[in-house]
Design a protein around this nucleic acid. Structure first.
Lengths: 343, 343
DNA sequence: AGCCATGGTGGGAGCGGTCCCAGTTCATGA
DNA sequence: TCATGAACTGGGACCGCTCCCACCATGGCT
């Protein structure tokens, strides 16, 4: 079986290239009987259109890029990215797109992106995540004119974005900790250059203040979304004797718990701990973590949908989607409830 | 600045398309002076050739695929993949290739690969890793005729592959444990369906036997390369009171250490622990791990090199590269040497 | 002086699709 | 019965690049 081309398929099915093309792209205007014939031939030959040819002629590569602005190390150790990648990848498959992953680790890598990837029209659009507030990378990409969707918070409303409802999530955490009677509440945040972290922090403060128990600034320690970072951050917190700690991710919460346990504090007895994300580490932790659940995979899926829309209609106004968060109570805040309130 | 094409560049430089093409592809046969002129124009305009057009005309996409046969979860939590991806990615950049990552999680995903990716000629070649012994996926890929390089062990010598010297590494571990006087030596292995795990296990057994201290089969527990898995595996080992445990990865070694500590055994006092890989977890662990160092990033780089060779000369015989391993002694096996023998 | 290698250079023919438009067929309504 | 147009179908012109080959000056030979 020599190399298969549209031409060849058409010939085998006894139709023209055009008709074969219509069938393949599932366009209408082909008599059902003929469509069948072509489909049969495709089936038998296992023909798959040549990506490059399609891309060249159709001005569209059907490749979407997922660009993560973090070190390889971070990307491959943070379960958040696993979930996101999973969601994005799934959605791409469902939509017959291929996904290409770009790790924007080094400055060099970041420069390659616009050049090699964008100008060469390799991808039709880009999903970017883990960007900083007012990230210059974002300007660059916007200027380059490529369809873009950010996963996370963005300051520029002209950019489409998807994220969890960070504000609502942080509020849930605050209310829960107050509800179980904690008053010396601390928080281990993500880096303030991260939009999500900034948003959560502000919302957390507001919620506590609104309830009449303003957050003591001393009890706020900025960290970096890693377990190690949270571990040392917590050590700084220990002398201040908080009775609750809200960590901005489950992974950090694990670090928090470890630091507390090493220092002889019991969780949740002495200190209640709340995480964020509800990814695998939350359940695996001892004790299992109370956490703010966000639907990471869905976030990825929505990002793809939004991006596809942008590609189709580049001039439509940008949109932002915020996915709801939910409080999941487990043992790290609730003695009476060791069994957990998992759904 | 309208859309730039080779044609346009040629025109601006006052030469023909052919000449401009020669300059871009760095072929010789162009007068230096003219070459300069073209390069200048390219520089000024920021022209980058259209990937699809190039691919279509040149029969080569300049895209390499990295396919990992594991769940998204595993991929994004095992530091080994981080290192490998890093190495591969780097090498691709250096060679002006773009990298595309494929996670072969579901059976569905695995079927997409040959169809959408290979038959469509999206990638020029594939680096595959985390395959099983005699993985049907591998036959499929070989049959499809795509240039292929496996990272890991393969039974079929017709397939090029790169890996650490697992045999040598395991031997080093065995010799070290014997050298520090341990005799009741246990091992927590990876799944035997993994070639690397199988190889290490056999080599470990042989080395111990050769030294006159054959491995007690009871002290061999098969696990799954995760920390959790190693944790429970170690618990099964505890009643048998080993005085040393060789884990097939650093991550597993961390689980081993944790299980030992929870059970009140001291490391290395009661039990010495050796890991494999020398990736970040090895240093981060308390105590830091003695481990068998392998150069993961280099493995990735070699894989790219090998793949590029295969693409150029598909009929050249397959090659296998084994990268040397090295013993790195840290506190998990050596009380006297708490400072470590790090290089 | 005439001739042929030789290093440069330009033009044309694809690569394998998509898309537009013109042509064909056939049922419909006047 | 014939015009009318909707429903299909086929052909050709690209998309932007690479590659092959013909072409053109040179300059060293005989």
């Amino acid at each position: 079986m020599g190399k298969m081309t549209l031409e060849r398929i058409a010939e085998l099915a006894g139709v023209s290239r055009s008709t074969a093309s219509r069938v393949i792209n599932d366009q209408d205007g082909v008599r059902p009987e003929i469509r069948r014939r072509v489909l049969d031939v495709i089936d038998v030959t296992g023909y798959v259109p040549h990506a490059a040819a399609r891309s060249l002629a159709g001005q569209r590569s059907r490749i979407l890029g997922l660009a993560i602005r973090a070190t390889t190390e971070q990307v491959f150790s943070d379960p958040y990215f696993a979930g996101l990648a999973q969601g994005v990848s799934q959605a791409c498959n469902d939509d017959d797109q291929t996904l290409s992953l770009f790790l924007l680790q080094s400055a060099a890598g970041r420069e390659q992106l616009p050049a090699r990837v964008l100008r060469s029209k390799l991808v039709d659009g880009l999903i970017v995540t883990a960007t900083l507030m007012d990230d210059p990378l974002l300007w660059q990409l916007t200027e380059s004119g490529i369809p873009l969707v950010v996963v996370g918070e963005v300051s520029d409303p002209g950019i489409s974005s998807v994220d969890a409802d960070n504000r609502g999530g942080a509020r849930l955490a605050a209310e829960h900790l107050l509800a179980i009677g904690r008053r010396r509440i601390a928080t281990v945040t993500g880096p303030m250059r991260s939009g999500a972290a900034a948003t959560r922090r502000v919302a957390f403060e507001r919620a506590l203040a609104a309830a009449g128990h303003p957050l003591d600034p001393q009890l706020v320690v900025e960290s970096d979304f890693t377990e190690e970072g949270a571990y040392t951050a917590t050590q700084r917190l220990l002398p201040l004797e908080p009775d609750a700690i809200f960590a901005f991710s489950d992974r950090m919460a694990v670090g928090v718990v470890r630091a507390l346990q090493v220092a002889g504090r019991s969780v949740p007895g002495d200190v209640a701990v709340v995480g964020f994300d509800d990814l695998p580490p939350a359940r695996a932790s001892t004790p299992p973590l109370t956490t703010i659940r966000q639907e990471v995979e869905q976030t990825g899926a929505h990002a793809v949908r939004l991006l596809l829309e942008r590609i189709q209609a580049p001039d439509a106004p940008a949109r932002r989607i915020e996915l709801p968060t939910r409080l999941v109570v487990r043992a790290s805040t609730s003695v009476s409830d060791l069994v957990g309130t998992d759904s």
